[in-house]
Amino acid sequence: MRIYLLEVEDLASTRCGYSPLHETVRSLRLRGRTRGFPEQRRWAAAWARHYTRLDTELLDALVTPGGHAPAVLTPRPRGCRPGLRDELSLLATAPPDRLPADLRAAYDRDGSPMPPALHRLLRDPYALRGRVVAALGAYWTHCLEPLWWPRARTVLEADLAYRGRRLAELGAEGLFTDLDPGISWADGELRICDGPPGRPVLWERVAGRGLVLMPTLFADRPLAGTSPSGHPTVVYPARGRGAMAESTARTAASPALAGLIGAPRARLLGLLDTPATTTALAQRLGVTPGAVSRHLGALAAAGLLERTRIGRAVLYRRSELGESLASGR
């Protein structure tokens, strides 16, 4: 267990954010795993053909058999929602000895032997760094960015929007207490059960460094630690990650609701179990964003949807009236 001690100023500087690079590297855990993350399996199967054309020798070695990854490849986000290419640019300028050291540490924690190919690459840290940046960039472009990332980003953005509402409505207690069953908050102490019972309790004062809350699609329990940049961080399973299992082909809306507001709008209302952007909804329905945007505007004007702007994106979610209609109450 890890316990973070937070003062008032620490609560004021607590922030939420996700890292596309973290999600990219963690998604490599789907390769060769027979259990875990069932909601992601069909995505991994869909991009398998593209993956075989990439630098698989290196990509397969970046995550250990037990699921450990180098810390430099799973960063804490700078800001709320950095871009993948911005994060790769930072990786390309990281100290050249950092990646080899983090790879060795990951395999040491795992207890597995390092692949011979990786041993050879460690001899030239500069070449290793460049090859990793190129391999992850190609993996992102060909496998994740076209279809997987729009859905994944929708889930992560919905989590951030939900956390913001919890903080506004309930304060720090509302923000922390439903992150995960293994996380509790009381009297200025944030307790994270991130390991087996019996492990020593680690106490740490945040002391003005800024606590980062980081949702991810690739965790089944919370993880706490301090990043190399000095920021105490809690990584937790993203709320609504089960939506990744949804097919783009959805069942039709109820005839009564379709008769009231039209089938396309009824279907959109049904999709918004979790907040989503216009682009994500269009991808799930297989139609143009323009067509979706017109229907969303009509539903919002009728009071069935609420809008929340997150940076340049707009998230739509059902209002109380929309919830009543969607559930048939």
Rank of each mutant, 00 (worst) to 15 (best):
V8M: 06
V8N: 08
D10N: 05
S13W: 00
C16D: 13
Y18W: 14
S19E: 08
T24S: 10
R31V: 13
R33I: 08
F37W: 09
Q40A: 14
R41F: 02
A44W: 13
A44G: 10
A44R: 07
A48N: 08
Y51L: 15
Y51W: 11
L54I: 08
L62A: 01
L62N: 00
T64C: 06
P65C: 11
A71D: 04
A71G: 11
L73Q: 06
L73R: 05
R78K: 03
G79Y: 06
D86Y: 05
L88K: 01
S89Q: 11
L90S: 15
L103N: 02
R104H: 08
A105G: 06
A106Y: 01
D110H: 05
D110C: 13
P113T: 13
A117V: 13
H119V: 15
H119P: 01
L121D: 01
D124S: 13
P125F: 07
P125G: 10
A127L: 12
V132Q: 07
V133P: 01
A134N: 04
G137L: 12
E145Y: 09
P146D: 05
P146T: 14
R151G: 06
A152W: 01
L156R: 03
D159P: 00
L160T: 06
R163I: 00
R165F: 00
G171A: 10
G171Q: 08
A172L: 07
L175F: 10
F176L: 15
G182A: 13
E189Y: 09
C193N: 11
C193F: 03
D194S: 12
G195E: 09
P196T: 03
L202I: 13
W203L: 11
A207T: 10
V212A: 13
T216L: 06
T216Q: 11
D220T: 13
R221I: 02
L223M: 12
G225N: 03
T226N: 01
G230F: 09
T233L: 10
V234Y: 04
V234A: 05
A243S: 12
M244N: 04
S247M: 00
A252C: 06
L257R: 08
L257D: 04
L257K: 02
G259Q: 03
I261D: 15
G262N: 13
R265A: 14
R265T: 00
A266N: 05
R267D: 13
L268A: 07
T274P: 03
P275T: 09
A276H: 02
L281G: 01
R284K: 12
L285C: 09
G286M: 06
V287W: 01
G290R: 15
A298P: 02
A302L: 10
L305D: 08
E306L: 10
G311Y: 05
A313V: 14
S319Q: 07
A326W: 02
